[in-house]
Amino acid sequence: MEIIVGSYEGLLMGYSIKSGTKTVQNCRSIPTFIDKSHSYSVKCIDVSSNNIMATGGIDEVINIVDLNKRISIGSLVKHESEITSLKFLNTSYLYACGMDGNISIWNLNNWNCEKVLLAHQGPISSIAIHYSGKLMLSIGQDKKLITWNLTQQKKAFVTNLDKNYDQVIWSIGGSYYALFSSQYLQIYQLETASLYLSLKFGHKATTLCFIEDDLLLIAIEKGFLKLYNLSKKCTLAKFNTKQNRVKQIILVNENIISSTSSVCYQPLTPSNQSLDISRKYCRNFDTGLNNNIKHKIIITASSDGTIKLFDLDLFKLKLEQLLVIDTSCRITCMAISNSKKHHYEDNSLIRENIVNNNIIDSEESITPDDKLIVNKKLKKSI
């Protein structure tokens, strides 16, 4: 598994995660690349199932990289303002939206822009594609939620919202979708298109992630995570990640990384402090979860520059830290891929890639002179 993060400084950084099944020492990170492909802050990243990476930023450019071959495919230019969200549809299309209110559709076979959807009267905050590949949601600062029919590439219907939201997210199984902002959360059922749940946060929230179809993690200020059950409509637990401001949470597919149940170590806090159980609603630790699926591996990225890998035990409601990566940059977005580590046989290729601002691969194959060049580029960029 490879973790890729974008930064406020315009850098892209990759880290390969190696995990074992017996000793914690086998769980480690290896820097794989650094790339300065954007002039300004990187706003969004997405990786397709065949490891094609798309990144968008304030510079209005979408950069495409083949993570398997470690080469830059090129840049896509269509929007007249910063790119705010990118989503791959299988290995066929890339959907991109921006502050100009438009959604561009790119064919991955020839990289032509097949269509531009005139979506919102104002900046688009977020787009989300349903796992069936037939529906897409978009929200904008015009207080509208648009449902798109992707088979016909046109609007299905438009919903007026009571306020602006920052993110729209589908649940794991696609039964729900969430509208999220720093103060409010609304959950809708897809089948009935009705409002299922409305929450107002007591503290400023930064992001959220579904880890089951009716179970989500909500990041709030000062690095806390709340585990919330939609069925029971209650908070099950509260965890302290000891990070500054969690910008993104990603649930790791068990097929990508080996089992870490025996690799867990050092709980973030003692067990009597790591939980904040709402006993009024969840007596006897009845979480309503499938106890056969106890562990979830999650990754958090924070604005303080740290990436953390956790094992979330859903049965015991414990969060244990597996790995910490300090990027020394202000992280803005994150994605993961299952690309295999690639080695260059000739270090001259790496020097050429550094000079040409192309992707840099595998720190293990970089000589001290190459590292000096990388450090100079980083200092100049920051």
Rank of each mutant, 00 (worst) to 15 (best):
T241Q: 05
K316V: 04
D304Y: 04
T287H: 03
Q243H: 04
G288P: 03
K232F: 15
C329A: 12
L289N: 06
I218R: 03
T206P: 00
R330S: 14
S271K: 07
A237Q: 06
K340R: 02
T287D: 05
S231Q: 07
I220W: 06
S259A: 15
S278C: 14
K296E: 04
Y265S: 12
S302R: 00
N255Q: 03
N244M: 12
G223S: 12
F224W: 06
L317A: 14
L323Q: 07
K238Y: 05
I298E: 06
K316A: 15
I250V: 15
D304K: 00
I336Y: 10
L215T: 00
N240S: 13
P270A: 13
I277H: 06
A301C: 15
D311E: 05
K280D: 07
I249G: 10
A237N: 04
L312Y: 06
L323I: 09
I220R: 00
I220D: 00
S328W: 03
L230P: 03
S274V: 08
T300S: 13
D276S: 11
G305Q: 02
L319P: 02
A301K: 01
R245L: 15
K238F: 07
N253Q: 04
E221D: 05
S337V: 09
C209G: 07
N292K: 01
L208I: 10
V324Q: 12
K341T: 06
T235H: 08
L227R: 00
Q321K: 04
L227S: 07
N253I: 06
L314F: 04
F239H: 01
D286I: 09
S271C: 10
I298C: 15
L317T: 04
E221Y: 02
I218G: 09
N338E: 07
N244C: 14
D214H: 05
K296V: 04
Y281Q: 09
V263N: 09
L312C: 14
N338M: 10
S274Y: 02
K294C: 15
T327F: 09
K316F: 12
S302G: 06
K280G: 14
L289H: 06
Q273G: 11
V252F: 10
F310R: 03
D311C: 14
K318C: 15
L323S: 11
Q273S: 11
K294L: 12
K242L: 15
H342R: 00
N253M: 11
D286S: 12
I299L: 15
I299M: 12
S303G: 13
K308G: 10
C264Y: 07
T306V: 10
